[in-house]
Write a protein that binds this DNA or RNA. Structure first.
Lengths: 378, 378
DNA sequence: TCCCTTGCTTGACAGCGTCAACAAAGGCGT
DNA sequence: ACGCCTTTGTTGACGCTGTCAAGCAAGGGA
């Protein structure tokens, strides 16, 4: 997909604009991209020919002049596969061109051996493809220092990998171009093109879950950093005398706001080691004072993290997501207070959007990375 | 300057490459910009014709093949003016095209009335120009929310301004295109093109002085944010039980590391209200224990700020500058320790460069903003 | 009915880059 | 000294990608 049709720079920009900003008339697209109307006619013609673009019903918007003819990307014209690797499992989704999930699967990892993981990914790609159209690309996301610009995974602590050329191995095993990317960055890319980031040239994504993460889009570009990781907010120090995290930091963000830390704290204080994160949250929602305080501390820590990110980067929007975002419901007050208190006084308040999260979002993010790679890589 | 010669996109990139990366042969420039050698011949011809580029002596580098013919920007072919506004004074410099300062002046502001300030800037421009060649642009930098993309200063607390179209007023008064920009960002731009940032696609500049500031370059672009300011690290919280800043924040970075806070702390503790920042530093250098501890606390705070910026943005380099950078000499240990302690454990250490600073650097930064605006504005 | 507004298309043309061929200018080996 | 090799720089033919100007298409409103 998108391979046979030699995409020029201009066609690329038109395709992306229509993919991300939905059906638009030629005239409107021309205005947005600062092109002449005639350029649009010429650029869209081959894309309509190959079927990547389709006409929409005439937009009879009661305005003056000739009705416009909206164009849209045909999302079914191609498919992507996204894979998220965790320590124990592999999650994979097959999506259309707008990253809507069509099928998904979830399997344990047999081992952490590179060959086994590559074989597992190959099987998943095959099973998700079935007799359907071959996917245009495979995106693989994992925690760690991977970057879509580099086929090699430099370092993955949870898999015990160093300098594994995972993208090339998967490409060889499946015959489909593959990319690897850090998982939070992949999620950020999904928000950028198909989520809350649409229409914002700069925003941050902050995730709460087993750890804290942060992805950045600045000036319409996903920030990847150069070797050093980006968005490493997990161990940001919050208080001098707080709980310890696994690395021995006292009062760092992760020790307050990760789901594991919250669960541990509630379970230990109430002396009920069997509590899950969800039951802890239910307790807090019911007004149990210990749970309530612990969640409020977590909310405060999260608010400070968000404010610090916004102060430094100047983003206009922060998207809050991750497995444990639901905690916002029981600590909104503390979060908002900390956010306001730590937002720089000369600055306007930053917009915060809470984004519900299911685990397949991780794999969907990987699919978006595959899509961006396929379209934007020169 | 650069106005008569209609600069095309390609010529612009060649000009900037040669301006920033010094004399380069056509072949080398072509390789760096990913252009063909023939393109370079064609792009440089008009620039050599107008005198903006000049040939350098043949580079007889004992290698094989025809000796290369280095090209360089003639820095004297144009001039820029940079103005830094403070609450009481106006500093202005005249520079060449490589932002080397040729003349400078320093005058009190008569008042904070917009007309008086504009007239003062106009006089400075006239006096710095003299009978020489007219400057290509005027850059004006000040603390506050100004941005080079906007001729209007939205808000300047120290001048009591709101929505003052300063750039347009100065353009009208002088007949020279003018730009306004936040002062830290201007300094960052100067480092990007002519300082420690050369060769780095991403870096941060952290300033220490009356306050703390931070400028960012990510992906070769100066980060300007969208309405909300960037690099607002001054009130980042460091300790729960620290000194108070003027805004009433307990233990924020500014309360530890601004030159005023350090001076106040040393003077109060030693009960010597007449001490200047410089004498405080001399005391610390001599081993006076109170001064020493206060400077070490400042160094720790600064290290934590730098680490936090590096963790979030992933920059490979942090440039440390500002009126009070010299403090590094007496708190290097504490700074380095805090930097290491707060750098995320999965990350490689960030490079830190200490950049000596004189007050005219502020105005020089403004000149670079003028230069960038003149060259890059479409 | 005519005109006005807006959207879309077409063909002529201009700008900017590559490609291929070649000239220039030195080092190196025989 | 001579040719050969390597690298740099130049030139002209060509192709691609956009704009411009002109015109057609398709409605609404007086």
């Amino acid at each position: 997909m998108l391979s046979e049709a030699h995409l020029t720079e201009g066609m690329r920009s038109v395709f992306v604009e229509l993919l991300v900003h939905g059906p638009l008339s030629r005239a409107e697209t021309a205005r947005r991209l600062d092109l002449s109307p005639s350029a649009l006619t010429k650029l869209t013609k081959p894309l309509l020919g190959t079927g990547y673009l389709v006409h929409q019903p005439l937009d009879d918007r009661g305005a003056m002049g000739r009705p416009s003819q909206p164009l849209a990307v045909d999302p079914g014209r191609g498919a992507l596969i996204g894979v998220k690797l965790t320590e124990e499992e592999l999650f994979a989704v097959r999506t259309d061109l707008r990253a809507e999930i069509q099928r998904e699967l979830r399997r344990p990892l047999i081992s952490h051996d590179v060959e086994d993981v590559v074989a597992g990914i190959g099987d998943a790609v095959r099973d998700l493809t079935g007799s359907g159209v071959a996917p245009a690309a495979v995106g693989i996301s994992l925690a760690g220092t991977a970057s879509g610009e580099n086929p090699v995974v430099p370092n993955s602590p949870f898999l015990g990998w160093r300098n594994v050329p995972l993208a090339d191995l998967v490409t060889a095993a499946t015959g489909v171009p593959a990319v690897v990317e850090n998982d939070v960055r992949a999620l950020t890319a999904a928000q950028q093109w198909f989520g809350a980031g649409v229409g914002h040239s700069s925003f941050a994504l902050v995730t709460v879950g087993a750890g804290l993460g942060c992805g950045l889009v600045i000036g319409d570009r996903l920030v990847r950093g150069a070797g050093r990781g980006t968005g490493l907010v997990g161990h940001m120090s919050i208080h001098d005398n707080g709980p310890l995290c696994e690395m021995g930091h006292r009062g760092c963000a992760r020790a307050y706001a990760s789901s594991a830390a919250i669960r541990r704290a509630v379970a230990a204080t109430l002396d009920r080691p069997d509590l899950t994160f969800e039951t802890c949250m239910a307790l807090a929602a019911d007004g149990e004072p210990v749970a309530r305080r612990i969640f409020e501390d977590a909310g405060s820590a999260l608010g400070q993290v968000v404010a610090t990110v916004a102060n430094i980067t100047g983003v206009e929007l922060v998207v809050l997501s991750g497995e444990a975002v639901t905690m916002y419901d029981v600590c909104a007050g503390a979060f908002d207070a900390a956010l306001a208190a730590h937002t720089h006084w000369t600055s306007t308040p930053v917009d915060v959007v809470i984004k519900p999260f299911t685990f397949s979002e991780w794999a969907r993010g990987a699919a978006v990375i595959a899509l961006q790679h396929r379209i934007l890589a020169r």
